[in-house]
């Protein structure tokens, strides 16, 4: 058997697709019972903990992005990261908070936000999160 014959991950994907209901493909022919033919081996499946981040222990389906490695690799966005375990929950719901502050302070915040290239909401939220005690 040549080395190229072993590249069958695509084939295994195809065989999975063909098992889905509603897929109009030729039904598989029943296999003839023969002592020489071994029973078909179940295909490789993803590990049960494949989507569990090894550091945070959180479920992160976007970790699978690493499976499309190579030039098309993009940094993970939105999913839990190692930093999340230090900084806190990433998926918290965002709510409005109206606070009265001196005009000069608002000006400083705007300047800082512009200099750092972030929104004023993000800047204030990160300052507050850093200043308050962690749970």
């Amino acid at each position: 058997m040549s080395a190229s014959d072993s590249v069958n991950s695509k084939n295994s994907k195809k065989s999975k697709k063909s098992k889905k209901p509603g897929n109009h493909e030729q039904p598989e022919k029943p296999q003839q019972s023969s002592a020489a033919t071994p029973p078909p081996r179940p295909a490789l499946s993803r590990a049960a903990d494949a989507d569990v981040h090894p550091v945070t222990g959180r479920i992160a389906p976007s970790i699978g992005a690493g499976r499309s490695a190579g030039r098309s690799f993009k940094p993970m966005k939105g999913g839990p990261t190692t930093a999340d375990s230090i900084m806190g929950e990433a998926g918290d719901k965002l709510v409005d908070l109206g606070v009265r502050v001196p005009k000069s302070l608002r000006k400083k915040l705007r300047q800082q936000a512009k200099a750092r290239g972030v929104s004023i909401d993000d800047l204030v939220a990160s300052i507050l999160a850093a200043a308050l005690p962690r749970d």
Binding site: S45, A50, R67
Partner: peptide, 9 residues
């Protein structure tokens, strides 16, 4: 290229 399985699996 994009792939389904890794050594972990």
């Amino acid at each position: 290229p994009p792939h389904t399985f890794t050594l972990s699996d």
